[in-house]
């Protein structure tokens, strides 16, 4: 390289320096901020994920070293009736419980957002069930409510309805009780909605009032658009979570997914396969199938978001 060439490139660079150095600065700042996450991804998350991807193509009983079986786990998935059943159960659960839970959560979040006395108390009360998590107490509780002689049937008895099913231990209604259980814990998305509502600048409403906009108009033109990133977040995450639903079915059915596999969620079956049947290879293959399904749905969600999610930039 000649000195002249060097000088030329140097002068070209200085011409663009301002812009490119600002961009470089921004990029450096971004990666610096992302550093903990990147270290976590590389050190804690990605490694085990890749290991599980490898295991998905092996026979791994947790005790002996895994050995390569190629596509055997995948062909087994195609012909496993319990797996197909668990997929069906999980889809049913997702399709029914996610919309109900989100609508209830959003409606109550708006109701509880402002203008009422004792709001903190209501909010706390509604959030309480979500605090219980997967505690063993919930299992007993749900049987007391939805059992043969449970609270629900006692109430129905007072109304003159006899011969109601034993909800929780009848395969045609057991999944329904878990959906109710999930809706009952709408507190988590509600809190996120509340936080989102709190973040909408009050000035927008002030301005709308000046313009004489009705409540309904405010809801449609301010609240929903400005809340849409949060609605989107809740939708995406609740779908992901619902596909991974485990604890409640595990606790309520004592880990069996019964009766008659009617509450055998996908992840519950995966857990049984991995830890009770010592087929971690097959479980890993199942996990990656679930990942593909959920990732596809999430991608779809992100695509659809272009048409309804409003970002302020």
């Amino acid at each position: 390289m000649t000195v002249i060439d060097e000088l030329r490139t140097l002068s070209e660079k200085t011409g663009r320096r301002d812009k490119s150095s600002a961009a470089a600065k921004e990029e450096r700042a971004a990666y610096l901020l992302l550093l903990p996450w990147i270290i976590g991804l590389v050190g804690v998350t990605a490694g085990p994920m890749l290991v599980s991807l490898y295991i998905a193509f092996t026979d791994y009983n947790l005790i002996q070293a895994p050995h390569w079986t190629g596509l055997h786990n995948i062909s087994r998935m195609l012909s496993d009736p319990r797996l197909h059943n668990s997929l069906r159960v999980t889809f049913e659960y997702v399709v029914v419980s996610v919309p109900i839970q989100l609508i209830v959560a959003l409606a109550l979040a708006m109701l509880l957002d402002k203008g009422l006395r004792g709001l903190p108390l209501y909010r706390s009360v509604y959030y309480l069930p979500s605090l219980l998590g997967g505690s063993v107490a919930v299992a007993v509780l749900w049987r007391q409510i939805f059992g043969d002689h449970g609270l629900v049937n006692q109430l129905l008895g007072h109304l003159g309805i006899e011969n109601a099913p034993a909800w929780v231990s009848d395969p045609s209604t057991a999944l329904g009780t878990l959906i109710v259980l999930n809706v009952w814990t709408f507190g988590a998305p509600m809190v996120i909605f509340l936080a989102g509502l709190r973040q909408i600048p009050a000035i927008y409403y002030e301005a709308a009032k000046v313009d004489g906009a009705s409540k309904w108009r405010q809801l449609r033109s301010i609240t929903l658009p400005l809340l849409s990133p949060i609605i989107f977040f809740n939708l995406v995450l609740q779908i992901i979570h619902a596909f991974q639903a485990f604890t409640q079915a595990f606790v309520v059915s004592s880990g069996t997914g019964g009766p008659s596999d009617s509450t055998m969620f996908y992840t519950l079956y995966l857990y049984q396969v991995g830890f009770n049947n010592f087929q971690m290879g097959y479980a890993a293959a199942m996990a990656w199938l679930l990942l593909l399904i959920v990732a596809a749905l999430t991608a779809l969600n992100f695509y659809a978001a272009r048409f309804w999610v409003f970002y302020d930039n």
Partner: peptide, 18 residues
Amino acid sequence: FSRRRFLGLSAMGLSTVA
């Protein structure tokens, strides 16, 4: 440079984990 450093770091981390 930063990208190379990043890639190197990740490769190192991954292989340690593996």
